[in-house]
Amino acid sequence: MVLTLVEHGDGDLAETSLEMLTLARDLADQVGEDLTAAMFGGADLAPELGEYGVETAYVCEGDLAETYAPEARADAIGALIDDLGPSAVVGGGTDTVHEVLAHLSAKRDLGMAANTVEIDAEGESWELTRHRWGGSLLEHAEMSGETKVFTTPDHELPIEPVGDGEAAVETVSPSVEEGSFEVQIDRVEESDLEGVPLPEARIVVGGGRGVGSEEDFDQLETLADLFDGATVGATRIAVDEGWRPHNDQIGQTGQKIAPELYIAAGISGAVQHWVGAKGAENVLAINTDPEAAIMYKGDYAIVGDLHEVVPELIDAIEAAKE
């Protein structure tokens, strides 16, 4: 059996989990085993998992579902491993899935491969391919052990429904070690940040070293204001310089964006940045250097100084909208 950890939020199954099921289903096919899922709450959504090939969903209710205590959730999955004996546990690599499955792997002494994109499950040791450097590098590896733990990266695998059947749903109350609820969410504080969050923005206007100062980001704000659902982002350098808050950072150690259009102004396109920006459908680069890496990664380019181009672009868009 292949046991997956499926997350949900706001009344929907999490996209990262649905992407993960594409890999997990292929894995279950390879080893000729059933595909199952563990969920914390969300029993009403669980039948839908049948559309993605899941035969049975085991739904944990009560404290396990109502609070987020990562070690307790790891214990619950551990108890399911004892009952079901899966050859693999797979989760869609959000922060919380990484956390829960790392606890599971540590407590149960299992190997874990994060951000896995391919598994070849022949023999005792399985071959796998996983992401390093946010996907800028691939690692080919082998994994041994009776139960193997994997996560998949965000926004990398396709979501592929395979039928219209419903998954069987079983409510379970796995035993949890005393003390595993010690670390749990105490409270949630709402952010006072305004505007569209970067990962949800339809249009992102990003600025890098070439912007040159905090004040010069004003014109990027003005440009962003011309679009619906647009927001301004920045590179690590612009944040390090103190021109923008860290919350605006796009990249490997910042936020990942997936807009319809990314306007990259004064951005060279370093690996660290591109890892966060590559989810953009279209990229318009504005850069003085025609040889900058962004010119090879983007779709459209204007060769020129953003301080000259952006004001003209703002005027031209305003004129076009009238």
């Binding site: 996907g135 010119m295 090879y296």
Partner: peptide, 19 residues
């Protein structure tokens, strides 16, 4: 249990941007 065998730079989907 996780043993790296070899690293690979993924084939880039890079094409030149339309200037």
């Amino acid at each position: 249990r996780l043993q790296m065998q070899e690293l690979e730079t993924p084939e880039s989907e890079e094409s030149e941007a339309e200037v």
